[in-house]
Write a protein that binds this DNA or RNA. Structure first.
Length: 609
RNA sequence: GCCGAUGUAGCUCAGUGGUAGAGCACUCGAUUCGUAAUCGAGCGGUCGUGAGUUCAAAUCUCAUCAUCGGCUCCA
């Protein structure tokens, strides 16, 4: 099985825009441009200290420790200064020096961050790169030979951001300037064009335009409210997955949104995530101090575990797959919230599988198979599979024995290798109770998000003292699999909106067909037809605005309704509809019965009209 | 949570110290219309919120809330 990794590239893209990692030339250009920028910054802001300035896939950045934050105005001035430097045609000279020499020179410049970087460089000689004789930086390279190789018209400074030194929030916060640089002005223009295109498919923008969900200040940040159309979309996805799960022996359960804090003490969530949970509800101060009270659930697993535990289980009952669309609440940091991809209340298509150790491998495969078939139905192809393992350097982050971890990670690696699935390892990405196989997707703005996940867990069964009676009559401990193909309905819908650019395939479209009466006389026929369609499970509606046909079509197109049906005298006469689809334009007159058939089969096959 | 930016009508946006504007949407009227915008009228905002400066604040200052771009975090 091979999957395409990331490509939002559309067929109309004529100019190829390489990623930095794909082009040695771009690496040099972007690296040197970041040096030129740092030189310009230090000329204009002599108090700014340099730190690091690497290339990134679409450009570069450089972090400065500056007493004054940079403004957009400053960016313009910096850009101007950069152009001057480029126009000076400064040679970029590589110099090799000893560690002592480098240290002395950095000290002379008074750049403490560079000293720290030097201390981390284990090899010698140390390389310095000079821009003419006016500026140099500790750097591994490579660079272009002369600043004249940079095209000022292909360079743009994009934004300023705060960034912690060494990515550590306990360390100093630096000012980061993001920029981009290309081989030609045409490439830069194309890059900007694509960025604009990407912004148009942003789910926050489309979600509003299509009326799928809203946020309301009085409700609170990160708490989406689903409109009728958005809710339809959710139910379609839920119904689809429920069907798939029923076919595979999952058992539905429903559990409450809150529980005693004790439940999460047993699971370990409270100790680990107390600060990231909504505050505990307590009757009074005394109980609050004693931590006696209720919390909103951040996870569903402890609830499903209680259902498992409610009876003595036999090996004959396993695997037991308890499934729930469970809404959980997490008090995410305010700066982390955004659209549907990071929220404080979201619904996990959660399931917990209780299996014997012997069943683990097969059951894991079954879950991966389900997840992949879900992605296939949703036409999601651009994802990466990540083996999220624990970080051995940081044992305090995890619970459970080394042995349990090794077994669990081994099970995941085996499964992935057996499936021949492309994957990469994410060390330190595990959950605190076990390793995961995560499916990572990109949004329109190329930010990565985890959707589907399967987790192998030997630890919670231990903590909750789970058992089953084995064939030989002894009590044994089951293994748990946590799994969610969607991950969260909210995030999935965010990604789907962007993946489809709002153009949902017919089976997912909240409104599948809109009837457009040419005049008021044809409204009764349109209404009758819609009623018939609704009886067949087709999501149909009539445009009653009374506007002219051109306007009705325009509005239906704007609402991205996959099928439009013009209704006039001819159609009433023939009991037909004049069909126009967003995808294919005018299809001519089609009998109502056939239109219904086609829409019904789109629903049944998870396809298009 | 941290750094920075932004916040004007349901939506998209104009308005930089002197009585709040446009287009779309909505309502009403006319038009009865055949594949991406019919015409006209009307309704609609204490300019995110709260303080302050000023004779006067959408506009300046501070605080606060929310959103956006990053960083950190993500069970």
């Amino acid at each position: 099985m091979a999957f395409r990794i990331w490509s939002h590239t559309m067929s109309e893209d004529k100019i190829h825009l390489p990623k930095t990692s794909e082009s040695e030339d771009l690496k040099k250009i972007r690296h040197t441009t970041s040096h030129v920028m740092a030189m310009a910054v230090q000329k204009l802001f002599p108090k700014a200290q340099v730190t690091i300035g690497p290339w990134i896939e679409n450009g570069f950045y450089y972090d400065f420790d500056s007493p004054e934050p940079f403004t957009d105005k400053d960016l313009k001035a910096i850009k101007k200064e950069m152009i001057k430097i480029i126009n000076k045609k400064l040679p970029v000279i590589r110099e090799e020096v000893s560690r002592e020499e480098a240290e002395q020179r950095i000290k002379a410049l008074g750049e403490p961050y560079k000293l720290e970087i030097l201390a981390d460089i284990k090899t010698e000689p140390i390389t310095l790169y000079h821009l003419g004789d006016q500026w140099w930086d500790l750097c591994a390279g490579p660079h272009v030979d002369n600043t004249s190789e940079l095209d000022p018209k292909a360079i743009e400074l994009e934004s300023v951001a705060g960034a912690y030194w060494r990515g550590d929030e306990t360390k100093a916060q630096l000012q980061r300037i993001y920029g981009t640089a290309w081989q030609s002005a045409e490439q830069l223009d194309e890059y900007k064009r694509r960025k604009e295109e990407a912004q148009k498919r942003d789910h926050r923008k489309l979600g509003k335009e299509l009326g799928l969900f809203i946020f309301a200040d009085p409700v609170g940040p990160g708490l989406p409210l689903w409109t009728p159309k958005g809710t339809l979309l959710r139910s379609i996805l839920e119904d689809y997955l429920k069907q798939e799960q029923t076919k595979r022996g999952y058992l539905p359960v429903v559990t409450p949104h809150i529980a005693r804090v004790d439940l999460f003490k047993i699971s370990g969530h409270w100790q680990k995530y107390k600060e990231d949970m909504f505050p505990m509800m307590a009757d009074n101060e005394e109980e609050k101090d004693k931590e006696i009270g209720f919390v909103m659930k951040p996870m569903n697993c402890p609830f499903h575990i209680q259902i498992y535990k409610s009876e003595l289980r036999s090996y004959r009952e396993l695997p037991m797959r308890l499934a729930e669309f469970g809404t959980v609440y997490r008090y995410e940091q305010s700066g982390e919230l955004g659209g549907l991809t990071r929220v404080r209340g979201f619904t996990v298509d959660d399931s917990h599988l209780f299996v014997t150790p012997e069943q683990l491998s097969d059951e894991f495969m079954n879950v991966v198979d389900l997840i992949l078939s879900v992605f296939k139905s949703l036409q999601l192809k651009n994802f990466k599979a990540r083996l999220s393992f624990r970080d051995p350097e940081n044992p305090g982050k995890y619970i459970g024995s080394d042995d349990a971890w090794e077994k669990a990670q081994g099970a995941i690696r085996n499964a992935v290798e057996k499936l021949g699935m492309e994957h990469f390892e994410g060390i330190g990405e595990a959950a605190f109770y076990g390793p995961k196989l995560d499916f990572i997707f990109q949004d329109a703005l190329e930010r990565e998000w985890q959707l589907g996940t399967v987790q192998v867990d030997y630890n919670l069964p231990e903590r909750f003292d789970l058992e089953y009676v084995a064939e030989d009559g002894t009590r044994k401990r089951p293994v748990m699999l946590h799994r969610a193909p969607f991950g969260s309905l909210e995030r999935l819908i965010g990604i789907l909106i962007e993946e489809y650019a709002g153009d949902f395939p017919t089976w997912l479209a909240p409104v599948q067909i809109r009837l457009l009466p040419v005049g008021d006389d044809f409204v009764p026929f349109a209404k009758e037809t819609v009623a018939k369609m609704q009886m067949l499970g087709i999501r149909a509606e009539v445009d009653l605005s009374g506007d002219r046909l051109g306007k009705l079509i325009r509005n239906a197109e704007k609402d991205k309704i996959p099928v439009m049906a013009v209704v006039g005298a001819k159609e009433v006469e023939a009991n037909a509809l004049s069909i126009r689809t967003r995808a294919a334009g005018e299809l001519g007159s089609i009998p109502v019965a056939e239109v219904c058939d086609r829409l019904q089969s789109a629903n049944a096959d998870h396809g298009n009209f």
